[in-house]
Write a protein that binds this DNA or RNA. Structure first.
Lengths: 131, 131
DNA sequence: CGGACTCAAGAAGGAACTCTCATGTTCGTG
DNA sequence: CACGAACATGAGAGTTCCTTCTTGAGTCCG
């Protein structure tokens, strides 16, 4: 799999500055939490209602789902649509911007699936060698 | 930029299970912390000594650098080579496995750089609209 | 003799993140 | 007249993460 023909190394400016101002870290700060990726990927398939997401993501609390969705909406990755029906109905869907994030996440997921076993093996080796 | 021609959606099995067993989350768990990406990217350019990394990464403490390197070594992404010289000299470099991770990270970095402004704008819009 | 250099490990405190539990709204159902 | 469904918000506690500060070993330099 290719990301580019000749993978562009991250630029100087990503690194020589304080971590606060590093692009990669910025993404990871908003997507590196426990639930965001799960939400993004589900919404990448189709729009979901709040309750659907809640049922689909095993183990998430209502509070965390709310907070995660709000944070994603704040950054323009997710759009919230509240219908004034009763009982209330709220749809969430990826924005165009959100959709563009799917490809990089998919790349990462691919890597994870392909190298999962290697990582597990390396860790076992390491743990056996040391403590 | 293409990751694949037709981006493969994440598979069912990434999501229907508990978050503990989701490939994407696994990567993010080890790479989503504050310093790992920075270290990986630097080592992607060439091998570095401990002190070089410490100087190159603005704001990292010795403790965190040590912990980060150890964790990466444990997972087989980084190899540690200690030379029995005085003063001690320790080199760190990416393993083959570590190198394969560069492409996905680069994809993410690209996204970050390209959409940084959009995210910032969205956030400002949101903050002005709400609290 | 005393300090510097290199690569760390450990303790202690604070910050950040997440969890559980409780509360609220509005309406249709039993 | 409760009660549940759907979509949340808030308090308070727990856990994990990160930071700062301290300690250490071994040798060379002045």
């Amino acid at each position: 799999m290719f990301v580019t023909n000749t993978p562009v190394p991250l630029t100087e400016r990503d690194l020589t500055q304080d971590p606060e101002d590093c692009p990669v870290r910025e993404v990871l700060d908003r997507v590196g939490d426990k639930w965001s990726v799960l939400v993004i990927v589900l919404l990448g398939q189709r729009a979901h209602r709040y309750g659907e997401l809640h049922r689909a993501i095993d183990g998430i609390s209502q509070r965390m789902l709310t907070l995660t969705l709000r944070a994603l909406a704040r950054d323009g990755l997710v759009e919230r649509t509240a219908h004034a029906t009763v009982p209330p109905r709220v749809d969430y869907e990826l924005t165009d911007l959100g959709h563009t994030l799917l490809a990089p996440l998919t790349a990462l997921d691919r890597w994870a699936q392909e190298h999962r076993e290697e990582v597990r093996a390396a860790r076992e080796r390491h743990d056996r060698a040391n403590g």
